[in-house]
Structures are given as C-alpha cells and as structure tokens.
Simulated scan of single mutants.
Amino acid sequence: MGILTTLRDGDHRLTLRMAAWDSDCARQLLPPVEKAADHTKLWWAATVAVAAAGGWRGRKAAAAGIMSMAAAELLSNGIVKQLVERRRPPKEWIPHDDVEDRPDSSSFPSGHTAAAVAFTAAVASSWPPAGAVCAIPAVLVAIERVHSGAHYPSDVAAGAAIGLTAATLVRATPRLIRRWG
C-alpha cells in the first residue's frame, strides 16, 4: 500500500470516528460554535472584545487578527478551493443531523479553520493571553468541521496550515515593506 493510500485511509477512518463522537458535550457545544463561526461572525465578535479589553495592545492584536483572517479567507476560499476539487465526506458516514447543512463547495481546505487559526495566531503574536483565549474556540471550530461532516481531517489540517501562513505573512509585511520600500 502506498503512502497516499495509507494517508487517505487514515483520513477516512478518523472522519468516521470523529463524526460518530456522540456525547452531551458535542451535542451542546459544537452546533453553536458552527453557527458563530459561519461568515466569521465569531472572529468579528472576538475582534471587538480584544480591541475593547486590551487598549493599544488589544487594538493592535485585533487589527492583526482581522488582516490575517482576510488573508486566510483569500488563500483558502479564493485560491486553493478553486484549484482543488474534493468531495465532502459521504453523508452516510455522518450519523447525525448536521450532515444536511453542508456547503456545496470543495471540501479542501477548511476555510473556517483557516480563518480561525489565522485570527488566533495573529492575536497570539501581538497579545499572547488573548491569543490563548481565542485558541479555545479555534480548536472547537476545527473539531466541529469534521464532526459535522463538512470536512475530512486533512482539510482541517490544510486550513490550519493556511491560517498559520496567513498570520506569518501579515506579521512579516511591515518588515518587508520597510526593507524594499
């Protein structure tokens, strides 16, 4: 068996296991996280909270978070999803009702995860305590994307990588402008 086949089979097994996770915690916590993360509402609310609570440092962290989130959305949804066509996990794999509310776009990568990780990483680099708080819903968003059947774990991992890349690019931009300007 080749490496790609092994990775794909592991991805499928992990999808089945995560989608079958049935606990009171998952049933109560994940659906509201999904609703809050749709259209980046969660991260816009976090922007307001971070900016209001942190003074100058909070405003800087919030601005970095928004710029990183925008870059991640552009990379994940505007570029990569257009280049890579991947079907979502089969509906029969998802043993709960969340499977009916899935997007029709490519499964790869997870744009929700890209935005969550980009925002969180950028906030964390400017204001670590706020970044630590943002990491909790970011992890929940990533878990929810697989649990709901919207994505495979590899889609979420790719989204996280895109989010980290976006945050790194945003953080490096002022230095690059000064260097080449």
Rank of each mutant, 00 (worst) to 15 (best):
I136K: 01
P31S: 06
A142I: 04
V141I: 11
V133K: 02
R8C: 02
M69Y: 00
I94N: 10
D24M: 04
A36Q: 07
A62L: 03
S68F: 09
T40I: 12
R171C: 05
G55C: 13
A71M: 14
P31G: 04
T173Q: 07
P174V: 02
E34Y: 04
Y152G: 12
G55L: 12
W127A: 06
A158M: 10
S154D: 06
L75S: 06
M69V: 02
A19R: 03
L169T: 12
T47M: 09
R27F: 00
I66H: 01
V84C: 07
H39M: 09
Q82H: 14
R171L: 07
S110C: 08
A118E: 06
D9H: 11
R13M: 07
S23W: 12
A150V: 09
R88L: 05
V170K: 06
A62F: 11
A138K: 04
R102S: 07
A19W: 07
L4Q: 12
P129D: 02
P89M: 00
G2R: 06
R86S: 10
L16S: 08
R171A: 15
H12Y: 06
V141Y: 02
D155N: 10
A64S: 13
A142H: 09
F108N: 03
I79E: 02
V84K: 10
T5M: 00
A45G: 14
S76R: 06
H112C: 02
L140S: 09
T15S: 11
I3R: 08
L7D: 00
V99T: 04
Q82Y: 03
Q28I: 05
A45L: 14
E144M: 05
V156C: 01
H112M: 03
A160W: 01
W43V: 14
V80N: 02
C134V: 12
A160N: 04
G55I: 04
L176W: 14
D101V: 06
D11C: 07
R88K: 09
I79G: 00
G2F: 04
W93L: 13
V117G: 00
G10P: 07
V117H: 02
K41T: 14
G111Y: 03
V48L: 15
S76T: 02
T40V: 14
A135M: 11
T5R: 10
L7M: 07
A142S: 13
W56L: 13
P31E: 09
A51N: 12
L83K: 03
M67T: 14
A61E: 00
D9I: 00
I136M: 05
I3F: 14
A160K: 08
W180C: 15
V48D: 10
C134Q: 09
G10E: 01
A37C: 13
S125E: 11
C134W: 01
